[in-house]
Simulated assay, not measured.
Amino acid sequence: MPRIFTAIEIPAHVAQMLTFLRGGLPGARWIDPGNYHITLRFIGDVDAHVAHDVASMLDTVNRAPFELRLEGVGSFGGRKPRAVFANVAPSQALMDLQAEHERLMQRVGLAPEGRKYTPHVTLARLRASSSGQVAEYLSERGSFRSVSFRAERFVLYSSRASVGGGPYLVEEAYPLTAVPARQAI
């Protein structure tokens, strides 16, 4: 059974910028820069039939390319931090694309995602990092800003069952090619 999810890839020049955030955090298992991405919808372990249905449903997405930027860093897990990440700057186009993925996955028969969508790029998974160590790491790197980059496609990734962090394989790529509607003046 493949473990699959949809995501926006991070271009190499932005991934290179993210590598400067590595280090300085005991207990961190850093994600390989080639595996950086912005998850749109985690689908999980599914059989081949459901994976095929997901891939077919994603073919119906018709959206225009859009600009993204990463800014600042954060963590998940509160008092027991489990990951540090780079934030994605607010983007209505990204939120709309993610919401469409959520609707499509429910049409395939998947349960709704239970968590609020927080667009991010995971930098490291944490094992034994204290909340104090994470707070120090975040305060030292909080001013991080990437250059803007254009999301011109999203992908359907698969991964082997593991603790996370890849390696990820692009199963299918879906170009963002729609022409934006003209705005009324």
Rank of each mutant, 00 (worst) to 15 (best):
F144G: 04
A151I: 09
V134M: 06
F154T: 04
L110K: 07
V121W: 05
L126R: 01
F144T: 01
V108I: 11
G114V: 11
T118N: 14
V155M: 12
V121P: 03
R127D: 10
S129K: 06
S148Q: 12
V108E: 07
S131N: 04
A151N: 03
T122Q: 15
A135N: 12
L138M: 15
V155I: 12
Q133D: 07
L123W: 12
V155N: 01
E140I: 09
V108K: 01
L138A: 09
L126D: 02
E136T: 08
T122W: 15
V134Q: 09
L110W: 06
R115G: 04
R141E: 05
R125Q: 12
V121T: 05
G142P: 04
R141Y: 02
E113M: 00
E136W: 10
E113I: 05
A111Q: 06
T118D: 03
L110Q: 10
T118H: 13
E113N: 01
S146Y: 14
V134E: 07
A111T: 07
G114M: 09
G109M: 10
F144L: 03
S148M: 14
R150G: 01
Y137D: 00
F144Y: 13
S131Q: 10
A128S: 15
V134W: 01
E113Y: 02
H120K: 09
G114K: 11
A135K: 13
G109Y: 06
R115E: 06
H120L: 11
R153I: 11
S130G: 01
R145F: 11
S143V: 07
E140W: 05
E113R: 03
F149C: 01
R107K: 14
A128C: 11
P112Y: 09
A128N: 14
T122F: 15
V147N: 13
E136Q: 14
T118W: 12
V121F: 05
A135H: 02
R150P: 00
A135C: 01
F144A: 01
Y117T: 00
E152N: 14
A151H: 09
V147E: 15
G132Q: 10
H120I: 11
R150C: 08
P119I: 13
L123M: 14
P112W: 00
V155P: 07
A124R: 01
